[in-house]
Design a binder for these strands. Structure first.
Lengths: 193, 193, 193, 193
DNA sequence: GATGAATGAGTTTTCATTCAT
DNA sequence: AATGAATGAAAACTCATTCAT
């Protein structure tokens, strides 16, 4: 499996840095190769094409989000607490890696519709875990059981995403994690029974 | 003023169609010109460069949103009603013009950071009107006066935007306007005092 | 005759200024028209095309050189004196009009072979008058009667032209007319019997 | 070093031919590439841009002139003999390569001021060697020690250049090298003590 | 005569991908 | 497995010229 060879991760990480530092359209394959310390041609031993690199970047980085969220789901906390921890986790992971934040919030969105659809498919797993929290809360009576799950999920994700994007657009000038309590409060109020 | 000449609007509208039908990167100036029924060079009598077309598209179309919102603000309704009508208006304008919806939610976001910053500057006017509704509601006691205005605004806009984007990504398969009541309910609950 | 209408000369002079200030390739017809205070289309009422403007510029300005030289030829001076006065005149006319000097020595030479051939044809009249001085001097015994007329003419013109071009290239930093005595001395020594 | 790779010289030579045959402005990069038998993109592995090709052409070809002149300077001949051999060499090199003669005398002069200044900088080395001959002759008493070095150099170069350009303009109809004795005689008479 | 809006042909350069070594 | 030289398609923009008013 190519995914486990050292050069695979080496190229993925190089891509994040190259894209964050040069922007999506200025992150040529040759730049990524240089950043990774391999020849241009080597890239094509591990990835089908440039698009494949980008999707793989998102996929690999998404794993962290999903794994953390799965951990949160397994905890014995209330649904509200889980949602709070999910928001904190989302902010924390991105606040901890400016390059990654720039890539996911700004640069990767410059890709074409085809890539965006693939990215959305990867995102789905994360959103399904979010759905689990919401459903659990509705069942337990913590959240409003009459609400539309999809709209609720879009509110939570849309809010968290918008806040993160604005933070990146403002050049990380303030502390993203500090926003968490205010966001949690507002969203929980909207969701609660 | 070029802005009032017929060919100006003609090119703007052609650009929306060309971008919606071909995608951002495949909407060459020559395609826009052909769609507008003018020569390639004519484009440059009305716009400085391709970037200028794109920004102008957003600017011109944004006017509708802003004007409608200003109308809503002037009405004697409660802040909650105003917010509801803002959401309806947002959905209605985009549901009414698939081309425009595709362009604003998907295609224009593929532009580079420079253009995105200019687009954000234009968006600011709209967001400031949203702020006005929120502040008014906080003053009148309708909305929670302790909440963070910025976070509240990002929740409202992020939610509305996410819902619209998902609707476009799903090829307008369902009725966007029908989502409005659920969204209004959820958001208002989060905002109310 | 268009040549005598005020706008004809107006455009010629505008062209010299536009070319001198913007360079040959940056002196678009619209810039020349603006400088002349006429509409772009008006240019084409007086000149067949852009090339025609350039050739006309050279032709009109050459008239001064030729008329002065004809005056010199008519004087009762020795051939050596005439040659000296020709050199002085050449330097004086160009030193007196920096714009014209830039245009004839640098910018007009950037035109293509076709235009350069037409310019050379215009130059011929001037070179024939130079030939007259040389022949007269050879007949009178002042100049070496065994020398090749064409080579002699090319030496005189080549030297004067090279010195003028270098002066323009050096941004007119020194006095061109001051070079005359040295040039006259050197050339006359080479030519004399 | 790219300069020593076979394709570098291949492209330089192709550029000379393409420019000579099509004219400066009609020698598109694609034509040069085709003439060189490489892909358009390959040009850019060896040259920064089109301007870089043109300057490199002049630079590479100038080397021959300079090397020959350095050889002449090292010979034990008199300064007069050296000057004669310099003139012969100048004519010989260009008479031997019609393409090169067309390019240096006509086509390359159509470039813009920026390129022309760079070309002049390259030419400087050649002119400095000419100065060496002149100074040597003045010191040895062969040449007039009172003459202005710069004017003398401009006379020699201006004459040689004018004669070569006229020859090219006349489509190489006569033998350039045959002009040498007449030119040498005339110039030496002007320079001698 | 004068205008100036409209035309549309034409070229440099970039960069993802290949493949011989 | 790894390399990196070579490929060649693709697009924004300029500007001389026209012609309806």
């Amino acid at each position: 499996m190519k995914r486990n060879k050292p050069k695979y991760k080496q190229i993925i990480d190089a891509a994040v840095i190259a894209i964050a530092e040069n922007g999506y359209h200025q992150a040529q394959v040759s730049k990524i190769a240089k950043q990774a310390g391999v020849a241009d041609g080597t890239i094509y031993l591990y990835f089908k094409n440039k698009e494949d690199i980008l999707i793989s970047v998102f996929q690999e980085k998404m794993v962290v989000f999903v794994e953390n969220l799965q951990e949160i789901l397994k905890s014995g906390e209330t649904s509200s607490e889980k949602l709070c921890r999910m928001i904190e986790n989302h902010f924390a992971v991105l606040a901890n890696d400016y390059h990654l934040a720039t890539v996911t919030q700004l640069e990767l969105r410059q890709s074409n519709k085809e890539i965006r659809l693939k990215i959305n498919a990867i995102l789905k797993e994360y959103l399904q875990l979010l759905d689990e929290i919401l459903i659990e809360g509705m069942v337990s009576g913590e959240f409003n059981s009459a609400m539309d799950i999809r709209v609720a999920r879009q509110m939570v994700f849309g809010t968290v995403d918008e806040i993160t994007t604005t933070w990146v657009m403002n050049d990380y000038r303030y502390d993203l994690l500090e926003q968490a309590p205010k966001v949690q409060q507002l969203l929980l109020k909207g969701l609660k029974a």
